[in-house]
Amino acid sequence: MTTFDLRAWTEEMTAHERVRAVVELLDEPTTVEEVAERADVSCEEVDSELGRLQNEALVRFEEVDGEPHVRPDVSNLFREDIERLVDNHDRGELESELQAMLGEREELRDVYDVDSASDLPDDKQEMQNVASTWEALEADIRLYQYALRRYED
């Protein structure tokens, strides 16, 4: 199992990148303080970055128990990711990456003898890690498929 390396997280990613990474992974409204803690960034830096992301319509704020919480605007983030892929990769690169991901997903199906991540038993840490990897692959596969459709348009 891979262990999380906080030093690499803070050395290899800027505060801006860490805040965005945390926000993109949120699955429920979260306070600025929680984002700051997860990103290892000051609340002031988080406020600044969230303001920028809000201006770009990539996050939304909502009140939860009278306190402001942030959540990602998943559809706009997805569109931005597609644009980034199309801008930074040619069609061949996207097709090659997509084929590699499809192959990896097929290997997971064969190794664990299941059709999807939701079919994996959830009682073991290894299975949870595999399920998370599988779900990330599914998300990336969809992203690359949409990016390739942009070339067809």
Rank of each mutant, 00 (worst) to 15 (best):
G103C: 04
L102A: 11
L58E: 08
E56G: 12
S96R: 13
D73M: 04
P68F: 03
G103V: 02
E93M: 05
T30P: 07
E44A: 11
L58P: 09
R79C: 03
E63F: 06
S96W: 08
E44R: 09
V74E: 10
F61W: 12
E104D: 15
V41R: 01
S96D: 09
Q99V: 08
F61E: 15
E67D: 15
E62H: 03
E34R: 08
E97F: 08
T31Q: 01
N55A: 08
E34D: 10
L53I: 02
L98C: 06
V64M: 06
L98N: 06
V41D: 03
E67F: 06
E28F: 06
M101I: 12
D40L: 07
E56T: 08
G66S: 05
V32A: 14
V59L: 05
V41M: 01
L50W: 06
V35M: 00
T31V: 10
A57C: 13
F78W: 12
D81N: 10
E44K: 08
D73T: 00
R71D: 06
D40V: 12
E80W: 01
E37I: 08
A39Y: 03
E67I: 12
E80L: 13
V59A: 11
L85H: 03
E56I: 02
D65I: 02
E62V: 12
E49L: 03
V86C: 01
E63A: 15
E62L: 11
P29I: 02
R38I: 05
Q99I: 10
D47M: 13
E95F: 07
S42Q: 05
V35C: 00
E67R: 11
D73P: 02
S48I: 04
F61L: 13
G103F: 01
V64P: 03
V35Y: 00
A100E: 14
L58I: 08
H89Q: 13
L53D: 06
D27M: 10
H69P: 10
R91Q: 15
L85W: 02
R84Q: 14
N88C: 09
C43Q: 15
P68L: 07
V64I: 14
Q99D: 15
E56Y: 05
V59Q: 07
D27E: 15
V86N: 03
V64Y: 00
T30I: 05
R38T: 04
N55L: 09
E95K: 14
S96A: 13
E104N: 12
E37N: 06
D81E: 11
N55H: 10
E49F: 06
S96T: 13
L94E: 05
V70H: 00
P29L: 00
L85Y: 04
G92H: 08
T30H: 01
Q54R: 09
E37R: 12
G66W: 02
N55Y: 05
V70K: 05
L85K: 01
D47A: 10
M101N: 13
V35P: 02
V41H: 02
E80N: 11
P72F: 00
N88E: 13
F61P: 11
R91Y: 11
E93H: 03
I82H: 02
M101D: 15
Q54V: 10
L102S: 09
L50D: 00
Q54N: 12
N55Q: 11
E44T: 04
L77P: 07
I82K: 04
D81S: 12
N76Y: 01
R38V: 01
L94F: 05
H89D: 08
E28H: 12
E67M: 07
L85Q: 03
D27G: 14
L77A: 13
